[in-house]
Design a binder for these strands. Structure first.
Length: 619
RNA sequence: GGGGGCGUAGCUCAAUUGGUUAGAGCAUCGGAUUGUCGAUCCGAAGGUUGCGGGUUCGAUCCCCGUCGCCCUCGCCA
């Protein structure tokens, strides 16, 4: 090939904007990826393919930063390669090019230590401009953050950014490892239907009209729960799926209408088997993807311990500020709010905020206000030490607390001078809720959360059931969760106290997965439905296929689902699961790139026997 | 459904107490430039201040409505 021709391209005619590159044949074939070249490649002839990230035209020498998925490398055009040089001078951001040249060591003064390829550059001999780009709405290399709605509209530009490429790459490595791990442990990857039966329990469903059955609908699955149990009855023993799930509820930074779970189910196992397997999976993920060695087994808390110590069932164990029940000490005070709460059968709970005795009255008022919004009647506070002498207590209620009880409170909470005690006197549940929330808020405010911690904890022994405001019992996990064997008798007498063979895995205060051992006996399942107020007819209508399956030889089985998006988000320390999904939706469920959801043709509705009551919103 | 924040040039932002011709950096276009890497230098172009209404002599600024995005409570495993 003639090095002087610089390829087959005619001049680009950039200024005239007659910019078609149609009909120009591509003759070069890629040999290497931009970001992978190293000093060891010096001397090699390579062909690179990628996008122009920036160009620096010095009149003579021209530099082009060429980017592909692997990274960026600097390409140099010298005037001696005249044709290539002439084309290079007309390059613009995000043009797509193929470049042939020699990998060359940079001179000592020309090294750029900021990029991995900064010790070498490619001296171009030939360039083919595959496709010219119009000036994009934003540049993938732009240092300032771009509005998220713009990023979502031009997602293909956004995904060119290294952070996004990194996220999708890591996500791929995570799912690949999950599949490999499952394969090693005897799991079969089995797909389950997306067009599914509507079972209006739990989350609101997306409905899909059936053309062949006018007036009837499929639902998109909230999860493959019932199918995976059915697969166990089928004797497939171990099932795994990277499963898409759909829930039509309001969105958050960590919630999308469609999201992904690692869903798995195993036969002839108990709780320990599932916990051990998932612990090993997580240990391996952190080791092989993040190069972090996790200490296993992970700590384990019963649901009740988690609530008593942290006020929530997904405790962030990276910091202290634990709740303490100080009811016994509070009973020995003359404090009216304490006495009233205790008399009403409630309790007094406290947290000790280290070094927070210096909070201003205004800050304390704000805490009190948020406590009220969370349902408390108020928030009592005590400053230890502070303005007065060491060992003293300050605050509006301090004078009602005898010295001996003050000492007892210090002992119970582990607080000392300079700390702040916050107390809620109310029902136990409100105390949990309020102090659990304040605990997180204070930890952030007081900077008590250590970075770079990976605090996993298993939460076990959840209550099976929960009594709703109206007095009705509902399943806390789902109605197929088996009670602990020793708690089976409680179902008849005190059902709220029965604990379940359920487990959640929590990382840094975020629930990343949950599962249970399922009921595999029809009689137990029938009792559970009865407790939940689901009549046999209703149960048969909604879950008949599973009840049938339980009659024909169901093995004991159980499983878990891990939220893949949240898991990857935490691994990458991103603030939103949208940043670890290729094509996420906005808070109102819109896809700004494709403009879904959109109105449809009347003909389509007619075919589906659907009438629309309210029209779509007008922009 | 409720609460809060944001919306100004293609992008990121500024604009004094409501005041005269709405500015800057990047991107774009033209020119210069042989070692840059957020290149540099000279020049140019670029605005329905999300949209609609109101108050005012005068609105980017104040008020009402509306649309969009984000955070959050409710909701949701």
């Amino acid at each position: 090939m003639d090095l002087e021709t610089g390829g087959v391209n005619a001049p680009l005619g950039r200024a005239g904007n007659g910019r078609s590159t149609k009909g120009i044949p591509v003759t070069l074939k890629r040999t290497d990826h931009c970001g992978c070249l190293r000093p060891g490649d010096v001397g090699r002839q390579v062909v690179l393919a990628g996008w122009v990230q920036s160009y620096r035209d010095h009149g003579g020498v021209v530099f082009v930063d060429l980017r592909d998925r692997s990274g960026v490398v600097q390409v140099v055009f010298h005037p001696e390669a005249a044709a290539a040089h002439a084309l290079a001078r007309q390059l613009r951001n995000e043009d797509v090019v193929l470049i042939r040249g020699a990998v060359t060591a940079r001179g000592p003064k020309a090294v750029n230590p900021k990029i991995p390829t900064g010790w070498i550059e490619v001296v171009a001999e030939q360039i083919e401009v595959v496709n010219q780009a119009e000036p994009p709405p934003f540049l993938p290399s732009q240092p300032e953050a771009v509005n998220e709605d713009l990023r979502l509209k031009y997602r293909y530009l956004d995904l060119r950014r290294p952070e996004m490429t990194e996220a999708l790459t890591l996500r791929h490595r995570v799912t690949k490892l999950m599949r490999d791990f499952g394969d090693e442990h005897g799991f079969l990857e089995i797909e389950t239907p997306m067009l599914y039966k509507s079972t209006p329990e739990g989350a609101r469903e997306f409905l899909v009209p059936s053309r062949l059955h006018p007036g009837a609908f499929y639902a998109l699955p909230q999860s493959p729960q019932l199918f995976k149990q059915t697969l166990m009855v089928a004797g497939l023993d171990r099932y795994l799926q990277i499963a898409r799930c759909f829930r039509d509820e309001d969105l958050r930074a960590d919630r999308q209408p469609e999201f992904t779970q690692l869903d798995l189910e195993m036969s002839f196992v108990d709780r320990e088997d599932v916990i051990n397997l998932v612990t090993e999976l997580l240990r391996r993920l952190w080791k092989q993807v993040l190069d972090v060695e996790l200490a296993t087994p992970f700590p384990r808390l019963s649901w009740r311990q988690a609530m008593d110590r942290f006020g929530v069932d997904r405790p962030d164990t990276r910091f202290g500020l634990e709740l303490r029940d100080v009811s016994a000490a509070a009973a020995q005070t003359d404090c009216a709010v304490f006495q009233q709460a205790l008399a009403a059968g409630g309790c007094v709970q406290m947290i000790a905020a280290p070094g927070a005795a210096g909070l201003t009255r205004r800050q304390l008022d704000q805490l009190t206000e948020s406590a009220r919004q969370l349902g408390a009647k108020g928030l009592a506070w005590l400053k230890l030490g502070g303005e007065s002498e060491a060992g003293a207590m300050g605050g509006p209620i301090a004078k009602f607390i005898p010295a001996a009880v003050q000492q007892e409170l210090r002992r119970l909470t582990g607080a000392s001078d300079g700390d702040l005690l916050l107390a809620v006197a109310d029902t136990r549940e409100i105390g949990w809720r309020v102090l659990g929330e304040l605990r997180s808020t204070l930890a952030r405010q007081l900077n008590l959360i250590p970075p770079d911690r990976h605090d996993f904890v298993w939460i076990v022994d959840f209550p099976c059931l929960e009594r709703q405001a109206g007095g009705r019992l509902v399943a806390r996990h789902h109605p197929f969760t088996a009670p602990l064997d020793e708690d089976l008798p409680l179902l008849a007498s005190r059902p709220e106290e029965a604990r379940a063979k359920a487990y959640d895995i929590v990382l840094n205060g975020v629930e990343i997965g949950g599962g249970s051992i399922r009921i595999h006996q029809r009689q137990v399942q029938a009792r559970m439905f009865a407790l939940l107020g689901i009549s046999p007819e209703e149960a048969q209508r909604k879950f008949g296929f599973l009840l049938d399956a339980l009659r024909f030889g169901a093995p004991p089985h159980g499983g878990i689902a891990l939220g893949l998006d949240r898991l990857v988000m935490l691994m990458l320390k991103r603030q939103s699961i949208r940043d670890v999904m290729a094509f996420p939706k906005t808070q109102s469920g819109a896809d700004l790139m494709t403009e879904a959801p959109s109105p449809v043709e009347p003909r389509q509705l007619q075919e589906l026997a659907i009438g629309v009551i309210a029209g779509p919103k007008r922009g």
